[in-house]
C-alpha cells in the first residue's frame, strides 16, 4: 500500500475520491431538498452558470479582482521596502517595532470602518484597506528574513568586493526570499478577506456585496452561487500562488527536499 502511494498518479486518485464523494453526496442528498436555506445543488449549479458565465462576471467579479490585485500589489511592495529597511537597521526598527506589533494585532477587517471614514465608500477606500492589510504580513516576514542573513554569506560577499547593489540583489534579497514569499502568501489571504469585507461594508459592487445583498433579500440561490464563487476564487488564488512560489524558490524547495 505504502509503496503504491509513492506513485504520483495513485496519489492523485487517492486524493480525489473524498472530494468527489462529498460533491456526489451533496448533489444527491440535496436533490429533493425543500429546506429554503439548502436548495438542491443542481439548482445552485444552474444558477451559478447563469450568473457567472458570464452575465454578472464583468459587473461584480472584475471590480473585486481589480481591487484585490491593485491593493495587494501596493501592499506587498510597501511591505518589502519597509521590511527591508527595518530589517537592515536595529536602531530604526527599535522605534517602529512596538507600533507595528500593535497595528498588526488589530484584526485586518476591523480597519475597514476606519478606511470608510478616511476615504468614503468608493473604490479607493477598498484598495487602501486591502493595501494596508496586505502590508503587515509581508513587512514582518521581510524584516525577519533580512535579519536572518547569514553572516558568513555577507563576509564572503564583502571579501569578493561585491557592490552594494549586488549585495542587495544577489545576496540579501535571495537569502530573505523564502520568508518574503511566505509573507506574500499570508498577505494574499488577508487581502482576499479584506476585499470581500470592504465590499460588504462599503456597499456597492463586488462579489462580496452581491452575495450579502442576495442573502439579505432571501435570494438564496444567488447567495449560494456567490459563496461558491468566492470559495473557488479563494482556493484558486492559493493554488496559483503555490505554483509561482515553487517556481521562484525552486532552489529552496530543492535544498529542503534533499536535507529531509
Amino acid at each position: 500500500m505504502t509503496s503504491l502511494l509513492n506513485s504520483r498518479i495513485i496519489r492523485f486518485l487517492v486524493g480525489i475520491w473524498l472530494p468527489l464523494l462529498l460533491i456526489w453526496w451533496w448533489w444527491t442528498a440535496s436533490a429533493d431538498s425543500v429546506d429554503p436555506f439548502f436548495p438542491p445543488l443542481s439548482a445552485i449549479w444552474e444558477q451559478f452558470k447563469f450568473n457567472w458565465i458570464w452575465q454578472l462576471f464583468p459587473v461584480h467579479v472584475v471590480p473585486s479582482l481589480r481591487n484585490l490585485f491593485v491593493g495587494y500589489s501596493i501592499g506587498i511592495i510597501a511591505g518589502v521596502v519597509f521590511g527591508a529597511l527595518l530589517g537592515s537597521s536595529r536602531r530604526v526598527s527599535r522605534y517602529f517595532e512596538p507600533l507595528i506589533d500593535f497595528f498588526r494585532s488589530i484584526p485586518p477587517v476591523a480597519t475597514v470602518p476606519v478606511f470608510i471614514l478616511l476615504f468614503g465608500l468608493d473604490a479607493n477606500m477598498r484598495i487602501a484597506a486591502v493595501a494596508v492589510a496586505a502590508t503587515f504580513p509581508t513587512l514582518l516576514s521581510t524584516m525577519q528574513g533580512f535579519r536572518g542573513t547569514d553572516s558568513t554569506l555577507l563576509d564572503t560577499g564583502n571579501v569578493f568586493r561585491l557592490t552594494k547593489f549586488q549585495m542587495m540583489w544577489k545576496l540579501r534579497i535571495p537569502s530573505a526570499s523564502p520568508l518574503i514569499w511566505s509573507g506574500f502568501q499570508v498577505s494574499l489571504q488577508i487581502a482576499f478577506v479584506v476585499t470581500i469585507a470592504s465590499e460588504i461594508l462599503g456597499s456597492g459592487f463586488g462579489i462580496g456585496a452581491f452575495t450579502v445583498m442576495s442573502s439579505d433579500s432571501f435570494m438564496i440561490l444567488d447567495a449560494w452561487t456567490g459563496v461558491l464563487l468566492m470559495g473557488l476564487i479563494g482556493f484558486a488564488l492559493n493554488v496559483i500562488f503555490d505554483i509561482i512560489e515553487k517556481r521562484s524558490l525552486h532552489w529552496y524547495f530543492g535544498q529542503k527536499k534533499l536535507t529531509r
Binding site: 436555506f37 477587517v109 489571504q189 482576499f192 478577506v193 470581500i196 469585507a197 460588504i200 462580496g208 452575495t211 450579502v212 442576495s214 442573502s215 447567495a223 449560494w224 456567490g226 459563496v227 468566492m230 470559495g231 479563494g234 482556493f235
Partner: peptide
Amino acid sequence: IPPIVIIPI
C-alpha cells in the same frame, strides 16, 4: 477558504 466567504449562508 476564509470564513467570511460563508457568512452569507
